[in-house]
Design a protein around this nucleic acid. Structure first.
Lengths: 205, 205
DNA sequence: TTCATATCATGACATTTGTCACACCGGTTT
DNA sequence: AAACCGGTGTGACAAATGTCATGATATGAA
């Protein structure tokens, strides 16, 4: 398991190297100190895993990773960062990072690296909770006093169906569907079925 | 590191047990064969990690986990499954699972368990890609030949704004906004602004 | 039984939405 | 100059949407 370690703080790279070397399955092929170097060293060594800091002077870890993944679709990039920056997180996901964990507890680095090596994706707890569509949602049904039928209708609205289509599916008259939606919008304090669909995606699905 | 293993196939539990025991840091406190037993055994042993199958006869792994997490907010549940079922995945996230990995390659289980133990969350690659809001999106702008203005309008539609509101923001007439949307729907082959908003959330945001 | 409640439906209505044909205009291209 | 084009606007229209008042029916509680 060959790893390339990049962080603009040399103290970090060296201690990471020490930690990683303590495991006999792991070999640190090189260490770099900039996004730039990351790209360069990755090209040269083609390591199994790139362990890289997000925020760095000059080229950020994200940009470097993007570049690298563009060249090698199967690159396994594991981001390591001191804090959880919302913007970076979603970008990290979108460029196809295999992991995003906090630097804090060093013991978790080795298992994380190994899990990534084995094809899993690893994310810190704090990271996951920053992603709206994944973090746990409270029960909208209870919070806003929506009943089963109303929920069913919302689901269909969020599928982009018209009132007529929904009425056919639910064996209701079109007018009834309209009425239900009217009530729902009232309860949720929204305007229009589009906002309702958006609400569904943000809060329920 | 104490682990509770639950799967309704005894063959699986026993082989998992063997694999896990091979690591000296890991101790399998017990094995169960139903969601029911999972809850019971968890109460009794309070293991560090619950490794549980999703689909089981009777009480599903998800339901069991939900029950368990309700009782112990810090429970670390790692789902293990043969296939990736969309519905289960999002539910797993929502109830606060620490991981969701496929049974296929057994070597990845130990590192995954350890990473979870260290506070990370672990998900199989195939799993993550099932989650629309996280997987990488191609450039919709190019793919469908949308121009800047059209993208701007889509964004506002996906914000739940009416044509009138959009027109005010973009300094266009309401009619023009309507025309634009009409064109966009044509290009994207959608019906209605609601579907457009949904499209935005699934493919762009 | 009588009353209350939930569920479904109707009709009327004002708005919003989507489509279409056409037109204006500033800048290119020919 | 003439033709063309992208961006913008208008008017007209049909359809869909949201709101409201009202009513029918069934179910269950008093």
């Amino acid at each position: 398991m060959r790893i390339l370690v990049v962080d603009d703080d040399r103290l970090v790279t060296s201690s990471l190297k020490t930690i990683l070397k303590s495991d006999k399955e792991i070999e640190v092929t090189a260490t770099g100190n900039s996004g730039w170097q990351a790209v360069e060293l990755y090209r040269k060594h083609r390591p199994d895993i790139l362990l890289i800091d997000i925020r760095m002077e000059g080229m950020s870890g994200i940009d470097a990773a993007e570049e690298i993944i563009a060249e090698d679709k199967d690159a396994k990039v594991l981001f390591l960062t001191t804090f959880s920056d919302d913007e970076y997180i979603t970008r990290a996901f979108q460029i196809g990072a295999k992991g995003y964990i906090l630097k804090q507890n060093y013991e978790s680095i080795i298992p994380s690296v190994k899990a990534v090596y084995m094809g899993q994706r690893v994310f810190g707890d704090e990271i996951i909770s920053k992603i709206p569509h994944i973090s746990r949602k409270e029960n909208v049904l209870e919070k806003y006093g929506l009943n089963e039928k109303e929920m069913a209708i919302i689901k269909h609205v969020a599928d982009g169906l018209s009132n007529r289509e929904i009425s056919r599916i639910l064996y209701l008259s079109e007018g009834t569907v309209r009425n239900y939606i009217s009530i729902i919008l009232e309860k949720l304090n929204l305007r229009g079925r589009t906002q309702l669909a958006i609400f569904y995606y943000k809060n329920i699905l």
